[in-house]
């Protein structure tokens, strides 16, 4: 009876109300990776799951309208270059690749531990974007004809 894409109204509304909270929690996990369990890998997957939640609830057309897919692909590809750039700056400043060149800060502070925080953020972006793009490609893959729409 439900002609429009995606799931029922209940799922849509709950997704609508809760998606910002999931994304915020993913950012929390990423940004506290050097203080608490978690880090770039776990937080990235949480963000990817939040986006996937919207994809499953609303269908792929809505998601393509909401997110700029080209931008996400560019983020995904450029994050690894950012990682390399951090490493090369370390080489220029400290003499070795991926040298921890930023000030260490105080222990248990948010902005501490030098390059660990930026690298965590880069890995988080990388993991989130790549996993979401894989699922988006799988969703766009038409299973009946074995061909992409």
């Amino acid at each position: 009876m439900n002609k429009e894409p995606g799931m029922t109204l209940i799922v849509k509304t709950v997704t609508r109300i809760s998606v910002w909270l999931i994304i915020l929690y993913g950012f929390y996990i990423i940004f506290h990776g050097h203080l608490t369990p978690g880090g770039g890998f776990g937080g990235g997957v949480i963000i990817a799951l939040a986006l996937l939640n919207v994809l499953l609830a609303y269908g792929k057309d809505f998601t393509r309208k909401w997110l700029n897919i080209k931008l996400l692909e560019n983020f995904e590809s450029s994050s690894i270059t950012l990682f390399l750039i951090v490493g090369i700056i370390g080489m220029a400043v400290g003499g070795s690749f991926l040298f921890n060149f930023i000030d260490k800060g105080t222990l248990f502070n948010m902005l501490s531990s030098g390059t660990i925080l930026p690298l965590n953020i880069i890995i988080g972006i990388k993991v989130a974007m790549s996993l979401f793009l894989v699922v988006l490609a799988l969703a766009a893959y038409n299973f009946d004809k074995g061909d992409e729409q």
């Binding site: 990776g33 050097h34 608490t36 880090g39 105080t106 501490s112 030098g114």
Partner: peptide, 13 residues
């Protein structure tokens, strides 16, 4: 490294 999480310290430093 200045990181409280030693696993993160090993992975990223």
């Amino acid at each position: 490294t200045g990181a409280a999480n030693l696993v993160a310290a090993i992975i990223l430093d």
